[in-house]
Design a protein around this nucleic acid. Structure first.
Lengths: 208, 208
DNA sequence: AAACAAATTAAACAATCGTTTAATTTAAAC
DNA sequence: GTTTAAATTAAACGATTGTTTAATTTGTTT
């Protein structure tokens, strides 16, 4: 499958991403997509082959730009704490930027209806965890992090906290009085990121 | 709406819960449900009125048994730390027990396709947060928890960590070599709950 | 200007969707 | 045993689904 799309295809992908995230894959018809993108319904089959292949194209389109540059982070001249903080910033900002896609991916990934190829998705996760492990080991060797840390459980806390807020966005918008998209975005980038940083740093030094 | 259902209705609710969680609300047809429950497709409209009302009945059926008894927890003769630990156990065991429903709820809650009444769901969350706030305030007054804790951000970490593991279950099953349902369940009830306890306790005492 | 392929369209396709109808069976009450 | 309401069924309904077809327009090449 190719990774370069023409303008019309990009338009379709963007509209599809919004609608899939809003109403789900099954909840969105190609007529919905065609209408919002101002194109004929036949264009979707014409360009992508089918509705399912449109979703596959969407995943490839977004994940090709997704790989975090964590290896370079490890080599930077920072303390383990600073590296962890920067790692969290990278993670959350990426997730926040591509919210829509992750909304779709998480649902489809846990759905047993379609058997899709999520290998790209899984590989990125494993790779990211290795980068995290290196930072943590370094912190332990320098004596600033405690021993016996299960690295695999850190990403669930980092990402899970973000996703839970995102999934229940209306609830937290009301709770924190976030009336605009900008207010919500600002909340994520300041308060929520800080909360996650605090949580992870606390976890890394907490004994018993 | 009534809260007591007959055997046939309970059978339908159970099957619907499984299928909705597996394939999504839109991805599941009432013919799928009828087939798996060994009943005629007309019985669903006959008993519940419509497919949407079936989902509403499912939510009411599960959440009527859901309200955490956190007020009683506060009155128990325990240290603030013990209360937090017990609260986390209550939370996660409830979520774990009703995984399927939450899978559905989270998706439908974030979906803009259906305008449903999630007031019951929202109210329970607010009430639970108040109970959590009481425990935290008590801990602060006793000097064991630090000041300036944003209580509203704790449930996202507690629940988000669980849900992220649950949503990516196949990934973590491979990672932790959990080959059976029992092994997965055991992992949740021991390692994951402990991880969350550690994280929250660390967060509650961590300064700067 | 003619020729040609690519892009775009309206229309039709069969399949499936949720729901309703009308007939039949079941089971309890009298 | 008859009556009556509830439970259950098969069949059909119209609407919508994803996809395909065949015709038309567009844009480029000769």
């Amino acid at each position: 499958m190719t990774t370069d799309f023409n303008e019309k295809q990009l338009e379709i992908l963007q509209v599809a991403e919004e609608l899939f995230a809003e109403k789900g894959f099954d909840g969105t018809s190609i007529r919905d997509i065609a209408k919002k993108a101002n194109i004929n319904i036949a264009m979707i089959s014409y360009y992508f082959g089918s509705k399912e292949k449109l979703l596959e194209s969407l995943i490839i389109f977004r994940t090709s730009d997704l790989r975090l540059k964590l290896e370079s982070l490890f080599s930077e001249d920072l303390t383990p704490f600073e590296k962890i903080e920067k790692l969290i910033e990278l993670y959350i900002n990426r997730l926040n930027k591509n919210r829509c896609l992750y909304q779709i991916l998480h649902f489809e990934f846990s759905s047993k209806k379609r058997i899709m190829d999520f290998k790209v998705f899984t590989d990125v996760k494993k790779q990211n965890m290795l980068s995290l492990q290196k930072i943590i080991t370094e912190g332990q060797e320098k004596g600033v992090f405690r021993k016996n840390i299960n690295t695999a459980l850190l990403p669930p806390t980092i990402m899970g906290t973000f996703f839970h807020v995102h999934t229940n966005r209306p609830f937290y918008e009301e709770l924190f009085n976030l009336k605009t998209d900008e207010a919500y975005d600002h909340f994520i980038k300041t308060e929520l990121i800080n909360h996650i940083k605090q949580t992870i740093k606390a976890f890394l030094v907490y004994e018993n």
